[in-house]
Write a protein that binds this DNA or RNA. Structure first.
Lengths: 104, 104
DNA sequence: CCCATAGATACCCTCCTCGGTATATACCCG
DNA sequence: CGGGTATATACCGAGGAGGGTATCTATGGG
């Protein structure tokens, strides 16, 4: 199973997630909106599914895909210790210096 | 030039960034800490350099690498519209519903 | 000066990913 | 049931990325 970072590396997968932000979508809807062949969307959705980015709700032959938070939250968590880099307010920097230690 | 997401996809590159959080490092120091051959570290540092994640400060034959904020901030910005997914407080959700629109 | 040290670059080889196309599967409807 | 629709899967081929090793370049020290 790929890491969330590897999953987000492909632009098409990020675009699928962007679309799903506006609400759940069927495979065919995504393919049409993105101008991509359906099997390609299905393949990437499988990767997004396996890595927890999306969930499926079957409805007869239709599959409705929706966002799931966990992997995105994991990426946000990884980013957190870097925040002080661009949020250079002194209070945050001070908090950073308090918690800084050599990552093992 | 690869996107920040593609750069972060490789675990070794993320580990390099993690080390640099504790302060600037020489190439050899990174190689030793990570248990990786020096040319491999150099190659990944070049990618991190070209994509703006790190900056170099030459010192004779030494090269001191340090973190740079921009690409990490860009990833954080991309994540921002997803935050409501896992921070499900009603006020944030309300703010989300106010700004939600179909991404073109 | 010459050697040692630090780092970058070049080259090779393998493996995996991605898109494309064809085909299979599931399900509804008439 | 038969055809059509919606989606998944299989297979292929090309390209690129990553690690390994050898070598080049630059610089300081004896």
């Amino acid at each position: 199973m790929p890491t969330p970072f590897e999953v987000l590396a492909l632009p098409l997968r990020r675009e699928i997630l962007d679309r799903l932000r506006a609400g759940p979508r069927l495979v065919g809807e995504l393919a049409a909106e993105l101008g991509v062949a359906q099997p390609i969307v299905s393949k990437q959705l499988k990767i997004l599914r396996d890595s927890g980015f999306v969930a499926v709700q079957p409805d007869a032959q239709r599959r409705r895909y929706a966002l799931r938070p966990e992997p995105l939250a994991a990426v946000a968590d990884w980013l957190e210790p870097y925040r002080w880099l661009w949020e250079r307010h002194l209070d945050r920097l001070g908090a950073h210096l308090d918690t800084m230690e050599d990552p093992s």
